[in-house]
């Protein structure tokens, strides 16, 4: 009975930076599964009306070198790259690049008058960083970043990852989560569902995210 048209409002933006380990230890099945998971992630987000218009995804890969292989973009505006294995584990540089990218994107949102949610940085790695990596320095930078509420960090450990080492850099309330086997598809389905909840949330809200038992296992 009642009827009325809605205006064409643009959506607020939410940045998700995926920082993925492509070192040689990820070669083969792990990287294949990660690539499948990333494709599914993009498809799942595209099917969520709100998330597809709010969520900007960026992809940083790290091996012997660190590369931003996808600048922040809505899922409808890019083709998910296929990752290939490449050398050692420059984790620290990759995380620094992710934090810089996040801050720069926020500056751009501000300068263009766009409203935004707190960005998320998701680290996925199977190994421990190269021995020359400044993990102590990175830990402090991440601590400052999270204390300043500049971003939310999630860390996913793959197979034989070094939990103790990764736990050094993660915020105490967000320790590394071990991936069960190579359940990347299940993880990215969960991430997509979680993004759907996050882009509809209020700041400060304690979100009941979907259960993680489909992809995570308990680290003893």
């Amino acid at each position: 009975m009642f009827e009325g048209q809605s205006p064409e409002n643009y959506e607020q933006k939410c940045l998700c930076v995926l920082v993925v380990d492509v070192s040689s230890s990820m070669a083969g099945e792990p990287l294949d599964q990660l690539n499948i998971g990333l494709q599914k992630f993009q498809e799942e987000v595209a099917m969520d009306f709100t998330a597809s218009q709010r969520l900007e995804i960026s992809l940083i890969s790290f091996g012997s070198s660190v590369q931003c292989i996808q600048e922040p973009s809505l899922v409808s505006n890019f083709k998910m790259p296929i990752l290939t294995a490449n050398g050692t584990t420059k984790l620290v540089e990759a995380m620094r690049l992710a934090m810089d990218l996040s801050e720069n994107r926020k500056k751009w949102y501000k300068s263009t008058g766009q409203k935004y949610f707190r960005p998320m940085i998701v680290l996925i790695t199977d190994g421990e960083p190269d021995s020359d990596q400044d993990m102590y320095g990175l830990a402090n930078e991440i601590k400052d970043f999270t204390n300043g509420k500049k971003a939310i960090f999630w860390t996913i450990g793959v197979k034989n990852y070094n939990h103790a080492k990764l736990a050094q850099i993660t915020p105490p309330d967000a320790p590394p989560r071990p991936l069960a086997g190579l359940a990347f598809s299940e993880f990215f389905k969960w991430l997509s569902d979680s993004m759907g909840a996050i882009v509809n949330s209020k700041e400060g809200q304690i979100l009941a995210l979907p259960p993680t038992n489909g992809w995570s296992q308990i680290q003893m």
Binding site: S6, P7, T112, G113
Partner: peptide, 27 residues
């Protein structure tokens, strides 16, 4: 029901006119 996040082509910025949308309310 409100115009609250529009894009100004000339200035290249998004803005919130905070404007009730007549095509929503008048009918």
């Amino acid at each position: 029901s409100f115009e609250c996040n529009l894009f100004d082509q000339d200035k290249g910025i998004y803005f919130d006119p905070n404007r009730p949308f007549p095509l929503f309310f008048n009918p």
